[in-house]
Amino acid sequence: MFETVFKALMEGFGESLKIFALTLIGALPLGLIIAFGSMSKFSPLKYFTRAIVWIIRGTPLMLQLIIIFYGPGLILGTNIWGIGSKGRFIAVIVAFVLNYGCYFSEIYRGGIEGISQGQYEAGQVLGMNKGQIFFRIVLPQVFKRIIPPMSNEIITLVKDTSLARVIGVYELIHFGEAFIKSNGLIWPLFFTGVFYLVFSGILTLLFGYIEKKLNYYRV
Protein backbone atom coordinates (compact mmCIF):
# COMPACT_ATOMS: atom_id res chain seq x y z
CA MET A 1 0.00 0.00 0.00
CA PHE A 2 2.72 2.43 1.01
CA GLU A 3 4.39 1.96 -2.32
CA THR A 4 1.19 2.71 -4.24
CA VAL A 5 0.54 5.80 -2.18
CA PHE A 6 4.14 6.96 -2.49
CA LYS A 7 4.09 6.54 -6.25
CA ALA A 8 0.85 8.49 -6.56
CA LEU A 9 2.13 11.24 -4.29
CA MET A 10 5.37 11.41 -6.27
CA GLU A 11 3.31 12.01 -9.38
CA GLY A 12 1.47 14.83 -7.63
CA PHE A 13 4.73 16.20 -6.29
CA GLY A 14 6.14 16.20 -9.83
CA GLU A 15 3.29 18.43 -10.89
CA SER A 16 3.83 20.73 -7.89
CA LEU A 17 7.53 20.94 -8.74
CA LYS A 18 6.70 21.85 -12.31
CA ILE A 19 4.52 24.72 -11.11
CA PHE A 20 7.27 25.77 -8.69
CA ALA A 21 10.06 25.76 -11.28
CA LEU A 22 8.13 27.43 -14.09
CA THR A 23 6.87 30.11 -11.72
CA LEU A 24 10.43 30.96 -10.70
CA ILE A 25 11.67 30.98 -14.28
CA GLY A 26 8.93 33.44 -15.22
CA ALA A 27 8.62 35.52 -12.06
CA LEU A 28 12.31 36.21 -11.32
CA PRO A 29 12.90 38.24 -14.50
CA LEU A 30 9.34 39.62 -14.57
CA GLY A 31 9.83 40.94 -11.06
CA LEU A 32 12.86 42.94 -12.19
CA ILE A 33 10.91 44.48 -15.07
CA ILE A 34 8.04 45.36 -12.72
CA ALA A 35 10.54 46.80 -10.24
CA PHE A 36 11.93 49.09 -12.95
CA GLY A 37 8.39 50.12 -13.83
CA SER A 38 7.56 50.99 -10.25
CA MET A 39 10.76 53.05 -9.91
CA SER A 40 10.31 54.77 -13.28
CA LYS A 41 10.73 58.53 -13.46
CA PHE A 42 7.87 58.54 -15.97
CA SER A 43 5.06 58.87 -13.47
CA PRO A 44 2.12 57.37 -15.43
CA LEU A 45 4.14 54.16 -15.82
CA LYS A 46 5.18 54.29 -12.17
CA TYR A 47 1.63 54.69 -10.87
CA PHE A 48 0.20 52.14 -13.30
CA THR A 49 2.80 49.57 -12.20
CA ARG A 50 2.28 50.32 -8.54
CA ALA A 51 -1.50 49.95 -8.96
CA ILE A 52 -1.01 46.52 -10.53
CA VAL A 53 1.31 45.48 -7.72
CA TRP A 54 -1.21 46.74 -5.17
CA ILE A 55 -4.04 44.75 -6.78
CA ILE A 56 -2.04 41.56 -7.09
CA ARG A 57 -0.59 41.74 -3.59
CA GLY A 58 -3.89 42.89 -2.12
CA THR A 59 -6.02 40.00 -3.33
CA PRO A 60 -5.72 36.27 -2.62
CA LEU A 61 -3.84 34.18 -5.15
CA MET A 62 -6.76 31.77 -5.07
CA LEU A 63 -9.10 34.49 -6.34
CA GLN A 64 -6.60 35.46 -9.03
CA LEU A 65 -6.49 31.86 -10.22
CA ILE A 66 -10.27 31.73 -10.46
CA ILE A 67 -10.52 35.08 -12.23
CA ILE A 68 -7.72 34.34 -14.67
CA PHE A 69 -9.07 30.92 -15.55
CA TYR A 70 -12.85 31.46 -15.47
CA GLY A 71 -12.97 35.21 -16.01
CA PRO A 72 -12.53 35.22 -19.80
CA GLY A 73 -15.33 32.67 -20.24
CA LEU A 74 -17.71 33.99 -17.60
CA ILE A 75 -17.21 37.74 -18.03
CA LEU A 76 -16.08 38.18 -21.63
CA GLY A 77 -17.84 35.16 -23.03
CA THR A 78 -14.73 33.70 -24.67
CA ASN A 79 -12.81 30.99 -22.91
CA ILE A 80 -9.17 31.56 -23.90
CA TRP A 81 -7.80 28.47 -22.15
CA GLY A 82 -9.33 25.72 -24.29
CA ILE A 83 -10.83 22.65 -22.69
CA GLY A 84 -7.84 20.43 -22.00
CA SER A 85 -5.68 20.02 -18.93
CA LYS A 86 -2.97 21.95 -20.79
CA GLY A 87 -4.98 25.16 -20.69
CA ARG A 88 -5.55 24.73 -16.97
CA PHE A 89 -1.87 24.32 -16.36
CA ILE A 90 -0.95 27.36 -18.44
CA ALA A 91 -3.53 29.43 -16.56
CA VAL A 92 -1.96 28.33 -13.27
CA ILE A 93 1.49 29.37 -14.48
CA VAL A 94 0.22 32.73 -15.75
CA ALA A 95 -1.46 33.49 -12.41
CA PHE A 96 1.53 32.32 -10.36
CA VAL A 97 4.11 34.18 -12.46
CA LEU A 98 2.11 37.40 -12.27
CA ASN A 99 1.52 37.04 -8.54
CA TYR A 100 5.08 36.16 -7.63
CA GLY A 101 6.49 38.66 -10.13
CA CYS A 102 4.75 41.39 -8.16
CA TYR A 103 6.01 40.12 -4.82
CA PHE A 104 9.55 39.75 -6.17
CA SER A 105 9.40 43.25 -7.69
CA GLU A 106 8.86 44.79 -4.27
CA ILE A 107 11.80 42.85 -2.88
CA TYR A 108 13.99 43.94 -5.80
CA ARG A 109 12.82 47.52 -5.37
CA GLY A 110 13.68 47.49 -1.69
CA GLY A 111 17.09 46.04 -2.52
CA ILE A 112 17.84 48.50 -5.31
CA GLU A 113 16.66 51.53 -3.35
CA GLY A 114 18.79 50.40 -0.42
CA ILE A 115 22.01 50.84 -2.41
CA SER A 116 23.54 54.19 -1.48
CA GLN A 117 23.77 57.02 -3.97
CA GLY A 118 27.52 57.01 -3.39
CA GLN A 119 27.86 53.69 -5.18
CA TYR A 120 26.27 55.12 -8.32
CA GLU A 121 28.41 58.26 -8.06
CA ALA A 122 31.59 56.27 -7.58
CA GLY A 123 30.78 54.34 -10.75
CA GLN A 124 29.94 57.53 -12.57
CA VAL A 125 33.20 59.36 -11.79
CA LEU A 126 35.10 56.23 -12.81
CA GLY A 127 33.47 56.66 -16.23
CA MET A 128 31.20 53.63 -16.07
CA ASN A 129 27.96 53.82 -18.04
CA LYS A 130 24.50 53.19 -16.59
CA GLY A 131 24.43 49.55 -17.65
CA GLN A 132 27.86 48.84 -16.17
CA ILE A 133 26.94 50.56 -12.93
CA PHE A 134 23.71 48.59 -12.63
CA PHE A 135 24.97 45.15 -13.60
CA ARG A 136 28.50 45.29 -12.15
CA ILE A 137 28.02 47.42 -9.05
CA VAL A 138 24.37 47.56 -8.00
CA LEU A 139 22.95 44.16 -8.91
CA PRO A 140 25.56 42.02 -7.10
CA GLN A 141 24.92 44.00 -3.91
CA VAL A 142 21.15 43.82 -4.39
CA PHE A 143 21.48 40.06 -4.79
CA LYS A 144 23.07 39.71 -1.37
CA ARG A 145 20.53 42.01 0.27
CA ILE A 146 17.50 40.23 -1.07
CA ILE A 147 18.50 36.65 -0.32
CA PRO A 148 16.67 36.49 3.06
CA PRO A 149 13.34 37.96 1.87
CA MET A 150 13.57 36.00 -1.38
CA SER A 151 14.08 32.73 0.42
CA ASN A 152 10.94 33.48 2.43
CA GLU A 153 8.89 34.09 -0.70
CA ILE A 154 10.27 31.07 -2.49
CA ILE A 155 9.46 28.78 0.41
CA THR A 156 5.95 30.23 0.47
CA LEU A 157 5.73 29.39 -3.22
CA VAL A 158 6.42 25.73 -2.47
CA LYS A 159 3.26 25.63 -0.37
CA ASP A 160 1.21 27.91 -2.61
CA THR A 161 1.46 25.39 -5.45
CA SER A 162 -1.33 23.54 -3.62
CA LEU A 163 -3.74 26.28 -4.71
CA ALA A 164 -3.57 25.02 -8.30
CA ARG A 165 -6.22 22.41 -7.61
CA VAL A 166 -8.84 25.17 -7.26
CA ILE A 167 -9.02 25.18 -11.03
CA GLY A 168 -8.60 21.46 -11.40
CA VAL A 169 -4.85 21.06 -11.78
CA TYR A 170 -3.97 17.90 -9.91
CA GLU A 171 -1.01 18.57 -7.64
CA LEU A 172 0.30 16.90 -4.52
CA ILE A 173 -2.60 17.61 -2.14
CA HIS A 174 -5.10 16.45 -4.71
CA PHE A 175 -3.37 13.10 -5.01
CA GLY A 176 -3.27 12.82 -1.23
CA GLU A 177 -6.96 13.51 -0.94
CA ALA A 178 -7.84 11.07 -3.67
CA PHE A 179 -7.05 8.24 -1.26
CA ILE A 180 -9.66 9.43 1.21
CA LYS A 181 -12.30 9.07 -1.44
CA SER A 182 -11.16 5.92 -3.15
CA ASN A 183 -9.75 3.88 -0.27
CA GLY A 184 -10.90 5.66 2.85
CA LEU A 185 -7.23 6.31 3.71
CA ILE A 186 -6.54 9.56 5.50
CA TRP A 187 -2.82 9.22 6.13
CA PRO A 188 -1.75 9.85 2.51
CA LEU A 189 -3.13 13.39 2.80
CA PHE A 190 -1.19 13.96 5.99
CA PHE A 191 1.84 12.36 4.42
CA THR A 192 1.92 15.00 1.68
CA GLY A 193 3.21 17.28 4.44
CA VAL A 194 6.44 15.28 4.45
CA PHE A 195 7.03 16.16 0.80
CA TYR A 196 6.54 19.87 1.46
CA LEU A 197 8.75 19.70 4.55
CA VAL A 198 11.58 17.88 2.82
CA PHE A 199 11.52 20.19 -0.18
CA SER A 200 11.36 23.40 1.84
CA GLY A 201 14.07 21.95 4.07
CA ILE A 202 16.35 21.48 1.08
CA LEU A 203 15.61 25.04 -0.05
CA THR A 204 16.35 26.38 3.43
CA LEU A 205 19.72 24.65 3.41
CA LEU A 206 20.43 25.93 -0.09
CA PHE A 207 19.65 29.53 0.84
CA GLY A 208 21.65 29.19 4.04
CA TYR A 209 24.59 28.02 1.93
CA ILE A 210 24.27 30.93 -0.50
CA GLU A 211 24.03 33.41 2.36
CA LYS A 212 27.14 31.95 3.90
CA LYS A 213 28.95 32.10 0.56
CA LEU A 214 28.16 35.80 0.32
CA ASN A 215 29.26 36.52 3.85
CA TYR A 216 32.68 37.65 2.72
CA TYR A 217 31.44 41.21 2.33
CA ARG A 218 29.00 43.53 3.99
CA VAL A 219 26.72 45.96 2.17
Binding site: E121, A122, L126, R136, Q141, K144, Y217
Partner: peptide, 23 residues
Amino acid sequence: FQNFNLFPHLSVMQNIIEAPVNV
Protein backbone atom coordinates in the same frame (compact mmCIF):
# COMPACT_ATOMS: atom_id res chain seq x y z
CA PHE B 1 34.80 60.80 -1.73
CA GLN B 2 34.38 61.65 1.91
CA ASN B 3 32.78 58.22 2.49
CA PHE B 4 35.25 56.34 0.24
CA ASN B 5 32.40 54.64 -1.70
CA LEU B 6 34.46 51.57 -2.39
CA PHE B 7 32.51 48.70 -3.96
CA PRO B 8 31.90 46.40 -0.98
CA HIS B 9 31.44 43.23 -3.04
CA LEU B 10 34.79 43.59 -4.78
CA SER B 11 38.22 42.97 -3.33
CA VAL B 12 40.77 45.77 -3.13
CA MET B 13 42.36 44.62 -6.38
CA GLN B 14 39.02 44.29 -8.15
CA ASN B 15 38.00 47.77 -6.95
CA ILE B 16 41.08 49.27 -8.49
CA ILE B 17 41.04 47.45 -11.84
CA GLU B 18 37.26 47.62 -12.38
CA ALA B 19 37.33 50.87 -14.34
CA PRO B 20 40.69 50.42 -16.14
CA VAL B 21 39.55 47.03 -17.47
CA ASN B 22 35.90 47.78 -18.18
CA VAL B 23 36.01 51.45 -19.10
